[in-house]
């Protein structure tokens, strides 16, 4: 958790500095009113200050824990270990799905996506019926609700 929080703080600082630099080119205010860059600049400074404080706090907690020879109180949180692989693969498949929704349409890509995810999560071990029926049933229900009831024009590809 500590490492992730530290990296996040650094990313926050980068974003804030970036926003700050852009805001310098905004037009100034007139007649006592502050310009559009005023508020973002305050926020950027705050984000940088807070992120530094966070880094400092986490460093101090680490040093204290090492001094006392204790393990750090936080349980280890991982994001790039073997256990997290499933999450990243899920994110990957979802990314492909999001792209496909635009390219080949909602209906086809959703059915394929649900089959792929069910196969990946080994749903067939739980229930073979669910494995076959869910993709079609879910997409049919969603299509009915959104297309027929809500009149949403769903992204369509060549086929649907």
């Amino acid at each position: 958790m500590r490492k992730i929080a530290n990296v996040t703080s650094l990313v926050f600082i980068v974003i804030a500095v970036f926003f700050f630099i852009i805001s310098l080119s905004f037009p100034p205010g007139s007649n006592g009113a502050v310009g559009p860059g005023y508020f973002p600049r305050i926020m950027c400074v705050l984000v940088v200050l807070l992120s530094c404080l966070q880094l400092f706090n986490s460093h101090r907690a680490h040093v204290r824990a090492v001094q006392r020879g204790e393990k750090e109180e936080n349980e280890e949180v991982t994001i790039f270990k073997k256990e997290n692989l499933r999450v990243w693969i899920t994110i990957g498949i979802t990314l492909v799905y999001v792209i496909c929704v635009k390219a080949i349409g909602f209906v086809v890509s959703s059915v394929v996506f649900l089959f792929a995810m069910n196969a990946y999560f080994r749903v067939q071990e739980k229930s073979k019926v669910a494995f076959v029926i869910i993709p079609f049933a879910v997409v049919a229900v969603l299509y009915f609700i959104f297309h027929n009831l809500l009149h949403v024009v769903l992204p369509a590809g060549l086929l649907f």
């Binding site: 959703s110 649900l114 869910i134």
Partner: peptide
């Protein structure tokens, strides 16, 4: 089981956020 729910929710997230403004 969660493994059945998660994919369905992923699809619902996608269609739900699309349908608010019909914007990809």
């Amino acid at each position: 089981p969660k493994r059945i729910l998660v994919p369905i929710i992923l699809v619902m997230c996608t269609i739900g956020s699309y349908s608010i403004n019909n914007n990809y």
